[in-house]
Each structure stands twice: as C-alpha cells, then as structure tokens.
Design a binder for these strands. Structure first.
Lengths: 263, 263
DNA sequence: TCAAGTTTGTGTTGACAGGACAAGAACCCT
DNA sequence: AGGGTTCTTGTCCTGTCAACACAAACTTGA
C-alpha cells in the first residue's frame, strides 16, 4: 500500500473517499434432501421487501469474520455457531448500492441442524430457500446477491471434492449413507454406494468409527456403522463430480469446475 | 445486507464507521529461474522505507479490479497489462494499519517479460524479490503484506495444478521445456520431461502447435516444437505436485494443498 | 418359518492414468 | 564418426476408479 494522492496520514480521517464496508453471509444447510440457503427479507430501502443475504456494516473494532458471525446471528436469530465459515470474495462494483459506494466482503458458512430462523434486527423475516430457486432466478434478490450466491454454490460444490467439509452438513455422528446423501444433494448427482463407501473409509482420518451401529429402521436394511468426523481436512485424491444428474438436467455445457480456497 | 443500527440511508453519508478500502497486488513473474514478486519501497509513513505490495485507495468510480491495475501501473511504472488478474482475498484485521481502519482487497497477477520496474507515485523504488526470501521472512515487509504474499504463493502453486495458467508465465510462443521450467520453478520440484510432455500435449486444447521449431542452440539438442496457448482454461485431470524438491528441502510436513478460485 | 425386499458392506474385474525408465530422433561440438 | 544434449515416443508396471456381482444383516408379510 503505497498510498497515493489522497494520503490519509492520520491527521484528517475525513479525507478518504467515502466507502462503506459490509459483510454478507451465504449460509448453507441441507433440509428435505435439498441444499438450502438462509435469506432475510429486507425491512428498509433500498430493495425493501426483497430477499437478501444477511449482512451489514463492519464495526470499528471487530474483524471481518466477527462481523459476519454477528450479522448472521442478529438478523436470523441463529444462535448456533456455524460449522464452517470461510471468505468467498469481495464485491465492490461502483454502483451496486444506490446510496453510496459499498464494498461487501462475502462469506459462506455451513450450518447443520438449523434451528427455526426468525427475523431480527432490521430483517423483517428470515427463511430458507432451495438453491435451485436462486440458480433459476426465480427469486428477485437485493443488490448483487444473486451473483454472490451462485459463486458460493460453485465454491461449496468444488470444496466437497477435495475437503472433508461434507461431514459438517451432518450431525456429530452419522452413517456413510448420510454422508453420501450430502454429496448427492449438493452435486445433484447419483453416487455409487459401494465405491463411495470404499473411498471415504480408506481416506486417511476422514471418518472415525464410534463402534456403534444404527438402530433397526422401518423398511429393513442392514444396520449401518456410525462415524464421527476425523481430523483430516483434505482428501488425498479428490472425489470426482460425474456428469450424471439424479433428477433434473441443467448443467450449462461449459468449463470444468473452479476450485477455491481460504479456509 | 440488512443494514443495522447505523443505517446509511443516503441522507447522511458521514454516519458510516470510518473505513478505508485499498487494493494490493501480488505480481508474479519468473526471472532467473526463480519465482519473483514485485515490491515497492514505501515513501511515506507508516512503514516508511519498508518494502510493500503496490496498492492504494480505491477511487469512487472505479471497480476494485480497475484500482488494482491502476495502482500497479502508477507505483511500479509497469505499462504492460498483466496476463492474469484474480482476487485473492480481503484482509481487514482491525489494527493492521496504525492510522485507521483499513480493509484491503488483495489481488494476484501474472506478468511475463517484465520491463524494468521503476518507482512511481508515492513509491520511492520498485524491485523484484524472490519468493524464497519472503517465505523465509528475510525481508521485513509493511503491514500484513508478508501474510498476503504467502497466501498468494500458495494460491498460484495450487492453480498450476488444475489450470492452464502456467502458459501465462511464458512468452506468447514457447516450447514444452519452457513450460516445464515454469512448473519446476513455481513448485520447486523436478518433473519428468517425458511424462510432462505427454501430459500437456494430450490435455485438450492446452497447447496449440505453431508448426515451427526452435532454432539450433549451443550445446546442441533436438529442436523443440513451438506452441502457443490454447483456449482451455482448465486441465481435465490435474497435474500433481510430488514431494520431490529439486534443491532445497523445506516443506512443513503438514496438510495437503489448498485450492483456490475466482478467475 | 420362510421368502422377498431393503440397506450396508466387500470382492472382482476391466479400463485408464501416471510414474519410471528405455530408446529413438535431431541437433551440437570436436 | 563418436559422444553429448535435448526433445519426443514407447514400454512396462502399478494404483485408482467405475461397474457390477454378491454377501451380510435386517424388516415385513405370508
């Protein structure tokens, strides 16, 4: 930072170009076998009444990450700590907010066992929406939040390939089938149970067996071993997203996936 | 963004918490078989005299990316457009700048055939430094720029695995050996020439043959075919960084690499 | 009790990709 | 011509993965 012609040397804080910094959070969870995100309905202009990502201004003495967690809590009533919080990117197109220059730092999070979201703060309402709705632009979102969400979805999809984050969508103890459902839902693909089983059980310290098995269920089936997440954060040789959708067929026939980081 | 208790609704722009937004650019190039980055010597306090990333304040009507390109040009005298420019992440720890709250959006870039850097703007001096110096903390950098650079280095290393970006380090036309040198330098690893050759030539539209071959050199050797970059941006099945360093052995024996995105 | 259905987990096989290494091709120099 | 260097292709071998068969353990219903 070799500051240029408007040098803020501490003597005149008002000399800065007036820019506001906000954070926004794309929170993912899996409900009803669908990947869903948490949105709030805006209670103020601009875009009053539209659905938007929870977020808001960064306060003087908090970090960006703290601001993201605080806004998530304030605006949705969620008290549980997210299982994962990671920076996605920063969006600062000059006119993305009609009032003034607003640069927003977007985060994405995983939340499992989501408690009932309620409105809070300036948000009139909070609710979950399926990502397929957002991807189809069926919902008119505030600001550039639609773009942010689409990039977050791509990020979480690619992260499942080479990290163990999928387990964060599950309860603290889970079966391999449950874990497989996460992949199938997020990728919208069918995965061979046998090969998936081998893959995750042989990946070093991805899963740790608790020694227990599931109780008998209706419709029968062999009881499944119960696992908890291991310490490994990365999968040595990634899983591959195959081009075999389970129900809907969208997939713009385009470039291979992007992989992303900072976590 | 459901803005919270200090709502800037356009009527009072001064009600915002005073935050400044800057951009910083980590520019990579390969010189003397080493991965190098472009730094400037700060001409002003704070950290006057220290080496720092080129960067500065975002102006009211420019995008973040435009600001990054402008600062790179102003502070280093580089006129060539970078071959690649991509957001790395945003750093906003409350006290990272002693003067006031400064949130910086970091970018990273690839520049080939770097013209002689010169100082410009507020920068007294501009110069290239080997990344091994920065990784070894042999240079005392301003602000948190050391951390930013380290994350950028990890990013470019991982991006070479699954993208065709390596070609951006080369001149517009190049041989497979030159391309292999890029990988070897960035990864600090030895790569088998035969297998590398097969890999990149069979990867769809990674390379396009110009039909030419190199002129005879001293020390002999068979003339190499000359290629230009293809249109493909991603490699179908990634190259792998193997644990075989060419000269120095560092490598903290830790977690697998992170892969990153937005580009 | 037995058959059929369901889910979990293991075995087997064949295709393919990648590393190691040999060898051929095309050039230099002496 | 012979040896050295670099580029390029060939061969072998191993490990991985998808596909699919099948065994294991359970429930339901007759």
């Amino acid at each position: 930072m070799g500051y240029d012609t408007k040098p803020p040397d501490g003597s005149d804080p008002r000399a800065y170009p007036p820019v506001a910094v906000t954070v926004d959070v794309v929170t993912f969870t899996i409900v009803d076998n669908e990947l869903q995100i948490l949105l709030i309905r805006r209670g103020q202009d601009p875009h009053r009444g539209r659905w938007a990502l929870p977020g808001g201004f960064v306060r003087p003495n908090e970090s960006l990450e703290e601001a993201a967690l605080r806004e998530l809590h304030e605006e949705t009533g969620i008290t549980a700590e997210p299982r994962h919080l990671e920076q996605l990117g920063t969006y600062g197109r000059p006119n993305r907010d009609p009032r003034m220059r607003v640069v927003t730092v977007a985060y994405w999070a995983i939340l499992a066992n989501l408690p009932e979201p309620r409105g809070g703060g300036d948000a009139a309402e909070a609710s979950l929406f399926s990502v397929v709705m957002v991807e189809a632009d069926a919902l008119k979102l505030a600001f550039d939040h639609s773009k942010i969400i689409k990039e977050a979805v791509e990020r979480v999809r690619s992260k499942l390939e080479y990290t163990t984050l999928a387990a964060q969508f599950c309860p603290p103890e889970f079966t391999i089938s449950q874990l497989r459902r996460v992949y199938e839902v997020v990728w919208n693909a069918r995965i061979d149970p046998a090969n998936f089983h081998r893959k995750v059980t042989t990946s070093p310290d991805f899963l740790r067996s608790t020694g227990d098995v599931t109780n008998p269920r209706a419709r029968g089936g062999r009881p499944a071993k119960i696992y908890s997440p291991g310490k490994a954060m990365y999968i040595s040789s990634p899983l591959m997203r195959s081009p075999s959708p389970t129900d809907s067929e969208d997939e713009p026939p385009e470039e291979p996936p992007n992989r992303s980081d900072r976590g």
